[in-house]
Design a protein around this nucleic acid. Structure first.
Length: 303
DNA sequence: AAATGAGACAACCGCGCTCTC
DNA sequence: GGAGAGCGCGGTTGTCTCATT
């Protein structure tokens, strides 16, 4: 919850005030109270939920507990090898977008995946000589932690392993959008290495707080929309490709069941990519933003 | 058996976005 | 259009457990 400023919020909300609020580990009794209440009344209205449920917790704490541990769909137990492999692949594509990664792994929560990454996978990659931040060989960056803050007082073990400034993710996704534009941003660095990667935006630019607004929602008429199915297929194609492993440009990928060539290193020559005139470069973006043209995809599939 | 350190992970914090009024 | 509430996210911290000395 946004922390209200002192001048605009004379009386702190219950969620912000810790006075009288219990903290720390949840007891089985509290879990039962919360579960029973949500099973009866449903999720939502977290701010007032604790009072209604008879809990001395802030709404945020209740939400976290429910989302991460009490929800029936949450899977407990060890991360399976195939899940681990999926996490690695998704992290390579998405960076520290834990909620997005979790969204692709049924039953796993963002917190669980984040913890697993910090305690297991990052160390595993380091032991293999791979920078967990960039997924590139550590020899390219002899001191992968050199860019972390020089906070000598920090006792965070995770902070010792994960640089505080994760890289710009290779993929940006809006999972909650009904309409998705498949857009490609050709990363200059990857182009130099003969690789390219696609980015997604939604119909109102990038929606997540971690995403930049690159589109002009006023001009959506010119944009061809795709669905979540397309997004899902495309992401799967990215996950299943070994784009980064061998330095070769992928030969083809599937989009919504349509086998298409991979994005060309020179995207302007890619026959499946169009560049909408109404897409301006966003701040911090150093390369053109392009979209797959569904019509061209269809043409390609028919040919 | 007690002390200590490291690992694991649950929980908290602060920020930013969207929604509602 | 602006302010505030609600929510979700990523980063960080706290605490518990277990292994080692």
């Amino acid at each position: 919850m946004r922390q209200p400023s002192s001048k605009t919020t004379p009386t702190p909300t219950p969620c912000c005030s810790k006075v009288g609020m219990k903290r720390g580990p949840w007891t089985p009794e509290e879990d039962e109270l919360l579960s029973n209440y949500i099973n009866k009344e449903g999720e939502g209205r977290w701010r007032t939920l604790p009072k209604r449920a008879g809990l001395l917790r802030c709404g945020k704490s209740c939400r976290l507990r429910w989302m991460n541990y009490l929800r029936p769909s949450v899977k407990r137990g060890h991360i399976a090898p195939d899940e681990e492999d999926l996490i690695l692949r998704l992290h390579r594509l998405l960076g520290n977008r834990w909620s997005l990664i979790a969204g692709r792994i049924p039953g796993r929560t963002d917190n669980e995946i984040k913890n697993y990454w910090n305690t297991h996978l990052s160390k595993k990659l380091i032991s293999q000589g791979i920078d967990p931040r960039t997924h590139k060989p550590l020899s390219n960056n002899p001191n992968p932690n050199s860019d972390k803050p020089s906070s000598s007082s920090s006792t965070s073990k995770a902070n010792q392993m994960i640089p505080s400034n994760p890289p710009t993710p290779n993929l940006l996704i809006s999972p909650s959008s009904e309409n998705l534009i498949i857009s490609a941003r050709i990363d200059q660095d990857l182009i130099n290495k003969g690789k390219s990667i696609a980015y997604y935006t939604n119909d109102h630019g990038l929606r997540s707080n971690n995403m930049m607004n690159i589109g002009n929602p006023e001009d959506d008429d010119d944009i061809n929309y795709c669905t979540d199915d397309v997004f899902s297929s495309f992401l799967n194609s990215l996950i299943n490709e070994d784009v980064f492993n061998n330095g070769q440009h992928p030969v083809q990928r599937q989009i919504n069941g349509i086998v298409v060539p991979a994005v060309a290193a020179d995207a302007s020559s890619d026959p499946l990519i169009s560049t909408p005139q109404n897409f301006a470069l966003g701040a911090g973006w150093d390369a053109p933003i392009m979209s797959y043209d569904p019509k061209r995809l269809l043409d390609h599939a028919q040919n």
